[in-house]
Design a binder for these strands. Structure first.
Lengths: 347, 347
DNA sequence: TAATCGAAGGCGAACGTTCGCCCGAACGTT
DNA sequence: AACGTTCGGGCGAACGTTCGCCTTCGATTA
């Protein structure tokens, strides 16, 4: 543990009062160029860094942003956590903030955990992810008027700053792409009903089908938790339907389901791509190295992170970000799993 | 922003001095059961939480542990980040600490960033990951006697607390497994020479081959950055060697290389598993859903995280953890990519 | 010449804790 | 009756900043 260097040490060496040193560091108050130079010299020689805790106490601010996320089961993993955290941490640092992680509490305790962190002055604000309808955290933070920005939407009637990726547009693009490939009977591997994100993405599928004047057989839509197995068994089942109502392609709400779907089609003797189209969502690492490589949607994670941070900092400074709600489009990455003829594969 | 409740508010309501409230909260000093009950009641009614910044200033401690990691390229992803962070955050919380992330600085600036964080009192200690030989961060932290624990080894002559996974034993197990499957000519997809982790894992390969009395043709060992492409091209090349010195299996130092290797073998018309054995390292999410599923090594991430935290907290309290260096074995997960007959597949 | 003004920098206070010391009362001991 | 001990709890100080106000002094203005 290195000896602490304080303002007083710097002041003593520069021959001024310690408050003057503070003025120089914070750039307010007027100080002559000569003394300022003296002070900077002393700071440099002593290797002084302002004590963030003391500053925090005085300004009642911590420079910390709280974040937590729902851990994925180990066999699935979070495809974008690395990128997302990297982006958020970088963006935060550019504004002088750091990211503080805390454990993802069970739903019942969530409110307490957030309350605790707010009341103890642990963080200046939150990024709230894995949002859902009636999200109690969002309700709490709105009510307490505590700075936060959500990554994801919640109840439409609640008015709070958020950034989200347009899952609806994404799945619509994927579905339209499958239609453009000549598919007419397209199935959907969806998430459980109660999922806000799932509802949004699902909507894109219906929009695309509807706009193209295609019928959706209710049997073509399966809602389940995301897993390889769920995707696999659903497609197995669909492939046993009578030919006239058997899907020739499937849009999945995430890559894991899509991979299960691909495997089921292959096991059924179909060539994924030419015979049976599959699309995913997320562009998880490794999806481009599957055989065939997976068509999927890539989220603009870095932009999301940057918007989250700039908006949150506005909130921390007591302002309301403008615009308050930002929806960013994902990008369709066309690979082999969804195209009938090789030459159409881009990227 | 909710109005701050302080010790004084609690004290006023309980009819005692605010220092007495502090005593109750921290459980030192003697207070009669009745007053204590009064005080707890007041705390509860007011929803008081101790202000961590003020406490931190007084005790010169932050309850924060600094962590950063080298971001992976988006097409690869960090296979264990989610699990690792979750485990570390949970373990830290169990001891009253939180994890603070900061950006991974370029090598040249690393020392400055760590210095800055130390001197500004930002964190109480560090977890240092992505270690390497002559790691300047470790050097600095040792010299400054600042609390830290490394996840990974560095120079053997440096004496500092660390936790690591036994990559040598891991790859040795994988290689021995391939030998047990009847392979004699086994190649190695290794990392660049300068990698500390790579050297460790590579050693395991040589040990296994040597113990089994098998010759290692220098042409069978390729050092390269981890990528699908690197694994792919290396195996393509090996499969063009004359039959008498052509490898029939390959051990890879990570899953990405292994996946490239699998694909190359399949593209060459071989059946991965029966004809050509492949093993990876990390048990990345999704490897069990590849076809064939990938034999790999799983790191005991949760134990690593827990040891890291308990050891670091010892250091923060000024003690040296005992034992100072902990090496944990990975577990070999045998799947289809390395076994010749189906019935041998476990798990 | 006197009043005014701005620049430079000192000074006290406060942010919300924890810590050590002190004091008074109650009790038991010689 | 005088004395030590223990318990309960009060009090001042300090942790290292920032902030607003004040003083000094030389220069400008009327």
């Amino acid at each position: 543990m290195p000896e602490r260097v304080t303002l007083k040490d710097v002041a003593a060496r520069a021959g001024v009062s310690y408050q003057t040193v503070s003025k120089v560091i914070n750039g307010n108050g007027s100080v002559s160029p000569e003394t300022e130079a003296q002070i900077w010299k002393a700071i440099d020689e002593l290797g002084y860094r302002v004590n963030v805790t003391a500053r925090g106490l005085r300004k009642s601010a911590t420079g910390l942003i709280g974040y937590t996320w729902a851990p994925s089961p180990p066999d699935r993993g979070n495809p974008i956590l690395d990128q997302f955290l990297t982006s958020v941490v970088d963006a935060a640092e550019a504004h002088g903030y750091h990211l503080m992680l805390f454990p993802h509490p069970p739903v019942l305790e969530q409110v307490d955990v957030y309350k605790q962190l707010m009341r103890s002055g642990r963080v200046d604000g939150f990024i709230v992810a894995s949002t859902n309808y009636e999200d109690p955290r969002i309700r709490l933070l709105i009510d307490e008027d505590f700075p936060f920005v959500a990554f994801g939407r919640s109840n439409p009637e609640w008015d709070f700053p958020l950034v989200d990726v347009d899952g609806c547009a994404g799945v619509r693009m994927a579905t339209e792409h499958l239609i453009a490939q000549g598919h007419r009977a397209i199935a959907l591997l969806a998430w459980p009903d109660h999922s806000r994100v799932g509802a949004d993405r699902t909507e894109g599928y219906y929009e695309a089908m509807h706009r193209a004047g295609l019928n959706v057989d209710p049997a073509w839509v399966q809602h389940s938790e995301s897993s390889f197995q769920a995707g696999y068994t659903a497609v197995r089942r669909w492939l046993e339907l009578p030919v006239d109502c058997r899907p020739t392609a499937v849009a999945a709400l995430d890559d894991t389901l899509a991979i299960g779907a691909m495997r089921a089609a292959m096991d059924a003797g179909l060539r994924v791509g030419p015979d049976f189209g599959v699309t995913g969502f997320d562009d998880a690492p490794g999806t481009q190295y599957l055989s065939p490589s997976l068509t999927t949607l890539r989220q603009p994670i870095q932009q999301v992170a940057q918007r989250l941070i700039t908006m949150l900092i506005e909130r921390i400074h007591g302002r309301m970000p403008e615009p308050k709600q930002v929806i960013l489009p994902p990008r369709l990455i066309v690979r082999a799993s969804s195209v009938r003829r090789d030459k159409e594969i881009r990227e």
